[in-house]
Computed example of a mutant assay.
Amino acid sequence: MKRILLTGALGQIGSELAVRLRELYGSDAVLTTDVREDRSEAAQGGPFQLLDVTDGRAFYEAARVHRADTIIHLAALLSATAEAKPLFAWQLNMGGLLNALETARELGCQLFVPSSIAAFGPDAPRQGTPQDAPLRPGTMYGISKAAGEQLSDYYYRKYAVDVRGLRFPGLISHAAPPGGGTTDYAVEMYVQAVKNGSYTSYIGKGTFLDMMYMPDAIASVALLMEADASRLKRRSAYNITAMSIDPEAIAASIRRQLPGFELRYHIDPLRQAIADGWPDAIDASAACEEWGFRPAYDLDRTTDEMLTTLSRKLLSSGGGSILLPQ
């Protein structure tokens, strides 16, 4: 990858991926785009452009003018927000994807398209969910991701578009605020542990979901996009995961550093129902075998970095913090 167009650059993944891509390929090589602008490094650290991905002509022109050879298309509405706005979610998630695929086809670009564990439905095996399990999602977000996988495969077979993708688990990050995902409770728990020493979870005890620390997710995108195409037996949706955890597991990990941390529950029926329709733990062996996927962070290492970094951020902002042990 040399010249990259990144959509959804100010979201949870994009805000960190943009920084890493500029480190790898140079600041001027990465054009970041979003429907809004802010003062983050993703927007200010190199070329940035306002872009509505549902505008196909604007999408194409942005890639053409930048002379992009790679598109990383992250713009989408996430699970809980999509369920509240299903029509808008379909229009954004599928309309934006179709424009990304068409632009990649017309300009000969490599294309990365993220999928999600939400693409699986409640009838998928909950433990060790295989790479090729049937996709019968029960949410609009999951439906758009499952349809997106099929559409991406179609463009690969019919037009030879070099499209690649990952089924992301829940992602844990300290760099950007949660963006409306069901698994965002994990990020919120770390933030509230540092600020208040307690957290009220909207997801119930014993609700296990796949998770991953953001540096592993970022590394996985770069690794997959650089992989030898001849090794890839699949295209649009490799299962990846680092850990299967529930709120109690995160709380126990936090208490290693903050023994007084309190976890309470007030279940959100919408997000609990979404979580109950997803696997407990997926099988990522295909990604390991075909392009060398290996997560570096387990739960405790993730917790240590999250608490330390969030504590420093809060102290530097003058907001006060629970002091962590050295």
Rank of each mutant, 00 (worst) to 15 (best):
M1Q: 07
R3Y: 02
R3W: 04
T7S: 14
T7C: 12
L10F: 01
I13G: 02
A18K: 00
R22I: 11
E23T: 02
L24V: 10
L24K: 07
Y25V: 15
S27T: 00
L31P: 01
V35C: 12
S40G: 14
A42P: 01
A42E: 11
F48D: 12
D52V: 01
D55N: 15
R57P: 00
A62E: 04
H66S: 12
I72Y: 00
L74N: 04
L74V: 02
A80K: 04
T81I: 09
A82I: 06
K85Q: 12
F88S: 14
W90M: 15
N93C: 08
G95A: 12
L101K: 00
T103A: 10
T103K: 02
T103L: 04
L107I: 00
C109V: 05
Q110R: 15
F112I: 07
P114H: 10
S115W: 07
S116A: 08
I117R: 04
A118L: 03
D123A: 14
A124G: 11
R126N: 09
G128I: 06
L135K: 08
P137F: 02
P137E: 09
M140Y: 04
Y141H: 14
I143Q: 09
A146W: 00
L151R: 05
Y156M: 06
Y156L: 07
D162F: 01
R164T: 06
P169Q: 07
S173N: 12
S173E: 11
T182N: 03
T183V: 09
A186S: 09
V187A: 13
Q192Y: 12
A193F: 06
A193M: 02
K195Q: 13
S201C: 13
K205E: 11
M211S: 05
M211G: 09
M214C: 08
A219P: 01
A222Q: 03
L224K: 03
M225L: 13
A227Y: 03
D228E: 14
D228C: 04
A229P: 11
A229F: 02
A229M: 07
S230E: 07
N239W: 01
N239M: 03
I240P: 05
S244C: 09
P247E: 05
I250G: 00
S253V: 01
R255A: 11
R256P: 04
Q257P: 00
P259S: 09
P259T: 06
G260L: 12
F261E: 14
E262V: 15
E262P: 05
R264N: 14
Y265L: 14
H266G: 13
I267V: 15
P269E: 15
R271F: 10
Q272T: 09
A273F: 03
D276A: 15
D280Y: 10
I282A: 07
D283F: 01
D283P: 02
C288S: 08
E289M: 03
E289K: 01
E290D: 05
P295S: 14
P295D: 09
Y297P: 05
L299M: 06
D300M: 11
D300Y: 13
T302F: 06
E305R: 15
M306W: 05
T309L: 10
K313Y: 13
K313L: 14
S316I: 02
S317D: 14
S317Q: 15
G319E: 12
G319Y: 01
G320K: 08
S321D: 08
P325E: 15
P325R: 11
